[in-house]
């Protein structure tokens, strides 16, 4: 029940809160970001963090390289990008992070699907899960079917799973709500 005078939180707001919680529980040393309009509150939250060193990257491939260097140096990176950024970085993910057994968590916001107004991005976003499966990049998917209260647990467990299995792990989330693509 919504209190009088207060507006109900959107699915996006609630999802962002859970993503922030998950990142904090994962306790990364660094958060590398390339913005998505849907995920702004998460980036702004960590810009002000004293626990996590957060900085923007100019392109996802460069980000994978920087994150890999951080990981080789013994610290834990998380990268937060749009799913289109996987297209810019899949060679670095496979032939460096995966081949050299370098752990990192890559959090990916979904584009395309219901609610998407861009008339081109669907051509990459829709086939992306299949592309990642074919490339053997382990990906966990969060959307409306997974209760929001489980999202933070999934994110923090995925970070641990990346370290324990010595490889990059992707967690993809659709925070626009609606059906799977």
């Amino acid at each position: 029940m919504v209190e009088r005078g207060k507006t109900m939180s959107s699915f996006r707001d609630l999802a962002c809160t859970e993503i922030i919680k998950g990142i904090e529980e994962a306790k990364p040393d660094y958060l590398l970001t390339l913005p998505c309009s849907t995920i702004g509150p998460v980036i702004e939250h960590f810009e002000n963090s004293t626990e996590v060193r957060s900085f923007p990257i100019s392109r996802e491939e460069d980000g994978v390289g920087i994150a890999a260097g951080i990981s080789l140096g013994g610290e834990m990176p998380i990268m937060l990008i749009q799913d289109t950024g996987i297209g810019n970085s899949i060679l670095a993910i496979t032939t460096f992070a995966q081949a050299y057994h370098v752990p990192m968590l890559i959090l990916v916001t979904r584009r395309g699907g219901f609610g998407e107004i861009n008339s081109a991005v669907n051509l990459f976003s829709e086939p992306l899960p299949q592309i990642l499966d074919d490339a053997n990049v382990k990906t966990f998917k969060l959307d409306y079917r997974v209760p929001l209260k489980e999202w933070s647990t999934a994110i923090s467990h995925a970070a641990k799973y990346a370290k324990d299995t010595h490889r990059p792990i992707i967690v993809m989330f659709n925070i626009k709500g609606g059906a799977d693509q």
Partner: peptide
């Protein structure tokens, strides 16, 4: 030494990450 066997162009980025941890 870390020898890159592929991923042309990534070396300076990896060096940034390592240098932050140093």
């Amino acid at each position: 030494h870390l020898y890159m066997v592929d991923t042309m162009g990534l070396t300076p980025s990896v060096a940034i990450g390592v240098s932050l941890t140093l």
